[in-house]
Amino acid sequence: MFRARPVAVAAALASLALAATACGTGGGQQEDGGPWKPDRPIELIAPAATGGGWDTLARTSGRVLEEGGLVDEPVQVVNKPGGGGSIGWAYVAQTPDTPTRLFVTSPPISLVPLMGGSTYDHEDFTPIARLATEYMVYLVPKDSPIESWGDMVDRLEEDPRQVSIAGGSSPGSMDHVALAGAVEAAGIDPTAINYVPFDGGGEAMTQAVGGHVDAVVTGASEAAGLVESGDLRPLAVSGAERASTLPDTPTLQEEGVDFTYDIWRGVMGPPDMTDEQVAYYEDLFTDMTEEESWKKQTKALGWTDSYMGSEEFGGFLDQSSTDSAEILMKIGLIEDEEGR
C-alpha cells in the first residue's frame, strides 16, 4: 500500500504512517464525474491535547456530524498537540493531497505565526467555514473603585501603573491583543499598560476576585458564572453586539471605543483543495450548524453562531490577521507585518 503513494514516502515520518492508513480504506479522489465526496474517514485534527478549546470544538463537531447522519464516513478526532498549534498545522500542511484531513482553528492561527511560533500561517491552508464566535470581556473585582470602562481609561491615562490587568495567556496572544487593541483605540499607549499573564483565564479571574490584580480580560462565557454571583463586575465586551450571556454589559463601541475582537472558531483544510471539495465541506458544515444538537451545545458553551463560507472566511482571516499584526506592532512585540 505504500507503493501506491510515492508522495507519502517523501513526506515526514509522521504523516507517512497516517497517509498509509488512509490508503488502507481507499484512494483519494473520486474517479467518476459526480460531486466530490470523501471516501474514507474524515480526520478532524485538534492541534492541541485532549480537553482544550480546540479539542472541545473538534469533538463537538465530530459528534454532531456523526449523530446527525450528515456524513457517510466516520469522523475521527486526532489530537496533534504541541508548539501552540504549530505541530498540528505543519502536519496538515505537509499533506496537501489529503482532502479528508481538516483542522479546527481560531485566532492563534494568525497570532502564533506572527509571533514567530510557526512557519505556516492561515494563507498556507484552505479556509472552509467559520462556525461560531465569542467575545472578550473586561472585568474588575466587585469592590473595585473603577466604575466603568471610561473610568478605567481615565485611570490608565493618569498613570498606567495604577491598574494591573490579568489575562490568561502570554503577551502577544488573544487576551493581550484584545486588551492592547482596546486601550489603543481609546487613545492610550498600549506599551505602557501593566499586563500580567496567568496560566489560563480561570487563574486570571481568581486573582482578580482575590484583589491581587485590578482588572482581568477573558472570554465572555468563562466569566459568566462569576459575573452572575457578583464577584466580578464586567465593564465592557469586545463584540459588535452585546453578548447573550452578559446582556447588561455594554460593548466597547457603546463606550465610544472603535474596536471589536472576536474569538472566532472555524475549520480549515490542507492547501490545494479543489472547488468541489470545498463546496462539499461548506454544505456539510452549514448543515451541521443548523442541527438542533449543535445549537444546544454551542449555546451552553457560550458561543454565538457566526457562520461564514469559505470565501468570506478567507477574507475575514486576511483582515483579522492584518489587524492583529498592526496591534502587535504598536505594542512593539513585532517589527513589521511579516511578524518576527
Binding site: 500500500m1 505504500f2 504512517a17 497516517l18 498509509a20 492508513t21 488502507g24 480504506t25 475521527q76 478526532v77 486526532v78 489530537n79
Partner: peptide, 11 residues
C-alpha cells in the same frame, strides 16, 4: 477510548 494509535499498513 478513541485515542488514535498508529495503525500502519493493517486495515
Amino acid at each position: 477510548l478513541r485515542v488514535a494509535l498508529p495503525t500502519g499498513p493493517l486495515p
